[in-house]
């Protein structure tokens, strides 16, 4: 196991990743059986979704397994794509092109603070410095029509797509920056925490969808956000809590009942993130935030729950354990 020693992951995490692939194979087989002998357009969206999961899980696994710089760059890229999707979707002002440019510049900076483990800067950069700078830049241009709406929508988008999501990245460096007297150690538990967060969040999305469909409504292919039934919601909470208890004992410092609590929190906040983005889509009268991921819609459709679960799970862990 010489190779494994050089990678930023532990052996336990490797087993869990293998487990995820087993689940994925299972899902692929089930959907193939569902489509067997049917017209090709039957369950097509479901099939595209499963296919996209293969790509997403593989890319994500690579991104966290190779090295830390790559993991942080990868998550920065996710933030960038999410912000781009958001800014392409909302009304913006012609006069604000340069302001949007500066908003994009905030992304590499924010992820650099993450990479260097500078918690103080990471936690205030967007809510304080960028928050104060962007209206200043906007004022310099002198266009006052629609000023409040422009700065409000821009700041909200940055908080959701960059500030919130960067908490997921900070999980990688959390264990070692929290270690006493700041001796530079290479701690592999961070990648596992990130994996745990993303796995539980996405598992919850799928669990809410599956429970909602199994019990909630027969023969409906939900077009927007599935699993908005009570059954889906409660089923998601229970499933996610159980999975969290199973996994957290292996790859996190949490005890059994804290792991259950973490699962409930992730499930609940994931649901809020999902419906928040849905509310915005309905406001803007669009169905998906984009078409980047076949079967899923835009990237923002996929990371909507993560915008809520990442900061909440992060602060939960940090408060109790680091």
């Amino acid at each position: 196991m010489n190779l494994l020693e050089q990678l930023p992951i532990t052996q336990d995490l490797l087993y869990i990743i293998a487990g995820v692939y087993v689940l994925l194979c299972l899902a692929t087989v089930i959907v193939s059986l569902m489509r067997r002998g049917q017209a090709p357009e039957k369950h097509l969206e479901l099939w595209l979704r499963v296919k996209s999961w293969w790509y997403m899980i593989t890319i994500f696994t690579f991104a966290i397994c190779i090295n830390r710089a790559l993991s942080v760059i990868f998550l920065g890229l996710i933030s960038y794509l999410a912000l781009k999707e958001y800014l392409s979707m909302i009304p913006t002002r012609r006069a604000d092109r340069r302001v949007l440019f500066w908003a994009y510049i905030a992304i590499p900076l924010q992820y650099y603070w993450v990479y260097s483990g500078w918690y103080g800067m990471f936690i205030i950069f967007i809510p304080v410095w960028v928050f104060l700078f962007l209206p200043f830049r906007m004022v310099l241009k002198g266009e006052t029509d629609g000023f409040l709406k422009a700065i409000g929508t821009l700041n909200w988008g940055l908080m959701m797509t960059v500030f919130s999501l960067s908490h997921a990245a900070y999980l990688i460096v959390l264990p070692e920056t929290a270690s006493e007297n700041h001796t530079p150690i290479f701690d592999k538990s961070g990648a596992a925490l990130l994996f745990l967060l993303v796995l539980l969040t996405q598992f919850n999305d799928v669990a809410q969808y599956v429970w909602g469909r199994l019990i909630g409504g027969p023969k409906i292919i939900p077009k927007v956000s599935p699993g908005k039934t009570w059954v889906g919601f409660l089923g998601g909470i229970i499933s996610t809590a159980l999975l969290s208890m199973l996994l957290s004992l292996v790859i996190s410092p949490m005890s059994l009942h804290m792991a259950a609590l973490a699962g409930v929190i992730i499930s609940f906040t994931g649901f809020i993130g999902d419906v928040t983005i849905s509310a915005i889509k309905r406001d803007l009268k669009v169905k998906d935030t984009g078409s980047t991921i076949p079967g899923h819609g835009g990237l923002l459709d996929r990371v909507d729950s993560l915008t809520y679960t990442a900061p909440v799970f992060f602060h939960f862990l940090r408060y109790f354990y680091y």
Binding site: K84, S88, R97, R98, F101, Y104
Partner: peptide, 9 residues
């Protein structure tokens, strides 16, 4: 007439 590129879909 503008040299600054800003990403948009």
């Amino acid at each position: 007439g503008d040299a600054v590129f800003v990403p948009f879909f």
